[in-house]
């Protein structure tokens, strides 16, 4: 096994930048190259998912001194312009994951990042299942397809370390603070199950603005809710220690 160096991941989610927010987040990213090797964003970059807001986000993230990886969130889908928003972000040099993965060379180690928006359904024992009406089957089936895609992408990667980036939560611990009644709309255990099966060192998500930062999957993988209202700071930095 190769000796890994420490890897510092800056992470945030739910920036919800409107058109009036131009320049505001960029300012907070000043000096990020001193603190982190890579920036990961957990979706809900915009407020209404308009192309104008997508352009604001792209400008905030353009030509950062560290690689930036993002997924989109439900707000970024609101205007049915998710593909267009992803395209303007990619034009600005941001890596946008859509149920696939990317390999980033960080120092002498290869970091694999897999993820996408994710989806809801609830948590083991208290969740929806693929049964009954077409609408319910579609809802759960959507999450299941996403989880399958992540598991395959994680397994196929030839990398030194793996991190998963999502908008929806894979576990309920990081939802603590949200009303129990809406848990099924905040995430799904199927996401955690897929990652536990395939293996990763860390899962980052957003979406649950009133949730809590820290949790664990049933398999013991660290989960962090990096929604800005949860973090209360510009971004978190997680250091994966070298081996």
């Amino acid at each position: 096994m190769s000796i890994l160096t420490d890897l510092r991941i800056a992470a945030a989610g739910d920036l919800h930048l409107g058109e009036d927010a131009r320049g505001s987040y960029r300012e907070r990213l000043k000096g990020i190259e001193e603190r982190a090797d890579v920036l990961m964003l957990a979706g809900d970059l915009t407020r209404h998912g308009t192309l104008e807001e997508g352009r604001v986000v792209a400008d905030e993230l353009r030509d950062l001194p560290v690689p930036a990886v993002t997924v989109l969130g439900n707000h970024d889908y609101h205007s049915d312009l998710q593909h267009e928003i992803a395209a303007v972000l990619r034009d600005a040099g941001v890596i946008v994951l859509d149920d696939d993965g990317v390999v980033i060379q960080c120092g002498d180690s290869k970091l694999g990042v897999v993820g996408g928006k994710g989806f809801g359904g609830g948590f083991a024992g208290k969740c929806a299942s693929e049964f009954g009406e077409r609408e319910i089957k579609d809802f759960v089936g959507h999450t299941r397809q996403i989880a399958d895609a992540w598991r395959v992408a994680l397994k196929e990667m030839q990398v030194d370390r793996r991190v998963v980036l999502s908008h929806y939560s894979p576990v309920k611990e990081t939802l603590e603070g949200e009303p129990l009644e809406i848990y099924p709309f905040l995430g799904s255990y199927l996401l955690a199950e897929a990652v536990d099966t395939a293996g990763a060192e860390l899962i980052l998500h957003g979406h649950a603005h009133k949730g809590s930062e820290k949790g664990l999957t049933p398999g013991g993988i660290r989960v962090r809710n990096v929604a800005l209202p949860v973090l209360g700071r510009a971004y978190a930095v997680y250091c994966l220690n070298g081996g």
Partner: peptide, 14 residues
Amino acid sequence: IVDYGEPGEDEHLD
């Protein structure tokens, strides 16, 4: 209104 100004403290996951 919350100001997310500074990045804050790092967390080491080992």
